[in-house]
């Protein structure tokens, strides 16, 4: 149903992409809009026992149970206290629907593939695992995130 791989190699015919950008702390990121199902305000999540620190819990989305991933924590930043300003991006990752907790959603960008620059080779796990490319928009740097690694095989991770 939705496309989940946001690779620099350009997925859509015609090379035009729509990306939704959001802010976590001082950094800006974006994901392919095809993966995004909706945007919601923050709701308190029910905690899950023995969950990794970036899984805040689960919420009810119209009758389905959805895990909430604190994207800041997942990307390796310090997670802040959640406030009413926090936003949940409901995304489809593979067969699962997941809520990504971010600070705020900024924009919808329509770009051509050639605007996406390859990720510079830096010593950052986050960069290596998640960043698929960089965009320069109005003097801001926006990192394109690939969602497929957001929900890893948690068993292996924990072992």
């Amino acid at each position: 149903m939705t496309q989940t791989h946001s690779t620099v190699a350009g997925a859509q015919a015609g090379g035009l992409r729509e990306l939704i950008s959001f802010r976590i702390g001082a950094q800006e990121f974006c994901v392919d809009i095809m993966a995004v199902r909706e945007i919601r305000g923050w709701t308190a999540a029910t905690a899950l026992p023995q969950a990794p620190p970036f899984v805040r819990g689960v919420i009810n989305l119209r009758g389905a149970v959805l895990p909430i991933v604190d994207l800041a924590a997942r990307l390796g930043f310090e997670s802040s206290e959640t406030t009413d300003r926090n936003v949940i991006i409901v995304a489809q990752i593979g067969q699962q629907v997941v809520g990504l907790l971010v600070d705020a959603v900024s924009d919808i960008l329509t770009v051509t593939d050639d605007v996406i620059q390859p990720t510079p080779d830096v010593a950052s796990d986050t960069a290596k695992l998640f960043v698929r490319g960089l965009l320069a928009v109005d003097g801001r740097m926006i990192s394109l995130i690939g969602l497929e690694r957001v929900m890893p095989d948690l068993e292996l991770e924990a072992a």
Partner: peptide
């Protein structure tokens, strides 16, 4: 009964989830 595994995975000690009267998820 709502599945936890549909969008997440099996959690030890937890069989499934449900949605209570207040709209919140309970394990």
């Amino acid at each position: 009964i709502k599945s936890l595994e549909a969008n997440y995975q099996q959690v030890p000690g937890v069989a499934a989830a449900t949605i209570l009267g207040d709209g919140r998820v309970a394990l």
